[in-house]
Write a protein that binds this DNA or RNA. Structure first.
Lengths: 206, 206, 206, 206
DNA sequence: CATGAATGAGGGTTCATTCAT
DNA sequence: AATGAATGAACCCTCATTCAT
């Protein structure tokens, strides 16, 4: 291994060290309470050092978002291989998404932070990453659909669009969890969620 | 008109004046850049005066949210009366929601602020308001559905749940507008949106 | 009763109404959390009205202090009449002072506020009042002493000075209660207090 | 001297610089008029810098209090070594305490601020400091007493308690200096003070 | 590479007081 | 006599970022 490679490796390690600290703070204190100086303290590094490895705070957030998307994807990814019929697989995807939103709330928050934020302009590279992450999730859904269609289990002409619909629905409904104690207080949110997923699946069953 | 009434009226006007300033800032600078001192400057009032009319910043945000929900509702409300078949009405609801999210972006953002925010605990009174606003929107959808069911146009056993599904879907998909230039770059977001709405409607057509 | 008298009476009543509110806040929220607007809310009066009856916040505090001194005095006053020997009476005075400092803490605080405050310049009238209050307390001690001297129970040439010494001692020691958990942690504060009072009394016993 | 040492030294110097500013304000404007922004202006530093060196305002006050206790102690400390009999030493302690209260009024005030303040909860470390400072002062008195007892000059079974009594008395009487123009206007405060100290000393002389 | 001291604008909030009504 | 809206300076504190070492 040459000097260059080692350098690059070390650099990556420092970046990880910083991300470890940021992640710890994200989980323990929530998105809003992360500050660079807190991260530097947690990472046992100088504030300036953080800025050497990340251009600014946003970049760290983006890295955390990537991580979150990674976790989300790996949870969903596994479903593809399971011995289930396509409909059940889709249900599992919905469940996995729901669980992720609840059990890894802060990651879900940070993903939403970028998804809802009105102002952020992504760099080309970051765009690619989000593209990939999003695509990977979509691909899982799409693959399941295609399998279903091939097997005659599903009937759908535009599996890609349906995948987006499917994802959009579960994403939107999870947001409505906040309304559990107001508008939706007479409905059990989980039941609505289940109902919706079933409804969508039925809509493409012959 | 007695002194009391005039006083009350003036008080309401001042509240509006403040809200006007806040709204202006909301639209021009975005949710994240509203500060009390900016509002006071914009409203040509002392900082203390703002606090005389609103307990804190959050209260102003809530007032803006109410306004937003009001606009949203009135846009959707009108559809009920139109001379359209139920399916077309639902499509119009979706379109209205979409248009609202695009044309009154900052209002949409502030609604989302409360919907996505990880931390906010609402007071009982605020809960009621959100409840009402949310319900009003849901009711429009539900009413359209019920009409459709009665007319034999739709077939759906649980119109309430379907309304939530419908709303959740369009809400979620609008969030995905942000992905237009990444994950969804090969799809036209509007087409996906249209496809999804159609799909949902088809799913309850006999 | 003429108009003037009624006016004066009404004025006094309003002043009391305000003082009632201030007292309530003093006891419930402590000296530091009293504000004019809180008082006005509590008293169900306008802020301006408060200023009509009291020149400023300080004046209200002074009134509260007077009240406190009144309570303190009346607690001590009663001891004079009791059927006890002079030494026991002095001990009771010390106990009463101690109890007052603990049970009516906020009154004790406000008295101290004026006693420790570096800056306050009293008006002539206020001076008289404090003079009177202080004197009344001192007089009780002095009277007990004089009785004791007459009866041959005490031997002291300057009862006035001894009264001040006595009062100063118990006052200072009560302040040291704050040190209970630091400097004086190995001593029981009450025992020290008792010891001190006894010691002082012994010093004037033949 | 290495870099680290120099850095540490510089850091200490900055802390001193800030404390200098705070002290200057303490003396010129009094405890109640110290604010962080005033300190920063006086110290020619940014507000943030102050917070870099002191966690909050309280910490600065505590540092000033420590200083005050230091001055007080060193004034009293010297008396121990003087060639005087124990009684005279005690009188000197009282004088030193009195002089401190008058000549370094603001330091006396700040010590009182912590002693009288209704609300403060000390951290463990601060407790230790106050403990130490208080103890050091008490120890001086106690040592003088013990010497006196050994020499047969004093007769006192509980020198510790008497020390506290002694300290409490002079502390309390100094507070009464405020009453010089009201309750105690017919007494010369200094004479009362002297009388009291003498009286206490007599009470333990055989 | 790494540091961490320094910044200063900005955050939200409180409050005694005034004054036109 | 009573009101309460209006003020605005002042409060404490946070923080992303820079830069000399």
């Amino acid at each position: 291994m040459g000097v260059k490679e080692r350098r690059a490796l070390e650099k990556q390690m420092r970046r990880n060290q910083i991300l470890d600290a940021a992640r710890k703070l994200l989980i323990s204190q929530g998105l809003e309470n992360i500050s660079i100086s807190k991260i530097s303290r947690e990472a046992q590094l100088g504030v300036g050092t953080i800025y050497f490895y990340y251009k600014n705070k946003e970049e760290i957030f983006i890295a955390l978002q990537e991580e979150g998307l990674g976790f989300l994807f790996s949870a969903i990814q596994q479903i593809k291989r399971k011995q289930l019929n396509p409909a059940e697989k889709l249900k599992e995807v919905a469940t996995a998404y729901y669980n992720f939103s609840q059990n890894q709330q802060e990651y879900f928050n940070i993903i939403n932070y970028f998804l809802s934020s009105p102002r952020i302009f992504f760099q080309e590279e970051q765009k690619k990453l989000i593209d990939m992450s999003g695509n990977k999730i979509l691909m899982v859904i799409e693959t399941i659909l295609l399998e279903g269609v091939e097997e005659g289990f599903f009937l759908e002409e535009d599996p890609r669009k349906f995948s987006i619909l499917f994802w959009g629905t579960i994403h939107g409904l999870i947001h409505f969890k906040k309304l559990e104690h107001t508008t939706l207080q007479n409905e059990n949110h989980q039941l609505v969620y289940k109902y919706s997923v079933d409804k969508l699946i039925q809509s493409i069953q012959p």
